[in-house]
C-alpha cells in the first residue's frame, strides 16, 4: 500500500524536486528500499548498502523516531506518513562525534 514520504530539502533534487512522494511498502524498511529503487539517486542516502539505516539521517513514522520503534521492521499503513530529516550535529573540537545513540 502507498505510504507518504516527506523528503528533506537536501534529498529532493534526487527525487525530481518533490517534497513528498508516495511509495509502496508494509514496513519502514520496505518503503525506504522502494524509495531508493524508484529514485536511484537516493541509493545509500537513507538505507546503507548493508541494509541498515544511514546513521546521519533520522526517519520518523508520524511523530516518532523509528529508532525508538522497531527501526526498519516497524509496520506501516496507508494512513501513516514517514519523514526523513538529516541528523544535525557538530561541535567545537575535532573529535568525531558518535551518533546520538
Amino acid at each position: 500500500m502507498p505510504v507518504k514520504v516527506n523528503l528533506p530539502t537536501v534529498l529532493r533534487s534526487q527525487a525530481g524536486g518533490a517534497k513528498t512522494v508516495s511509495v509502496d511498502g508494509a514496513t519502514v524498511g520496505e518503503v525506504l528500499r522502494a524509495l531508493q529503487s524508484e529514485y536511484p539517486g537516493l541509493s545509500g542516502q537513507v538505507v546503507d548498502d548493508d541494509g541498515t539505516m544511514h546513521k546521519f539521517v533520522n526517519v520518523y513514522l508520524n511523530d516518532d523516531d523509528v529508532r525508538y520503534l522497531s527501526a526498519l521492521d516497524t509496520p506501516v499503513g496507508d494512513a501513516d506518513e514517514l519523514s526523513i530529516l538529516p541528523a544535525v550535529a557538530g561541535g567545537a573540537v575535532g573529535d568525531r562525534v558518535p551518533h546520538f545513540r
Binding site: V88, A92, D95, F100
Partner: peptide, 20 residues
Amino acid sequence: NLAASAKLYTVDPKEHLRAD
C-alpha cells in the same frame, strides 16, 4: 542539545521534526 556538552552538539531529532 542532546549531547549536553561544552564541545559537542546534537539537535534533538524530535524538535527538528517539529521545527521542520
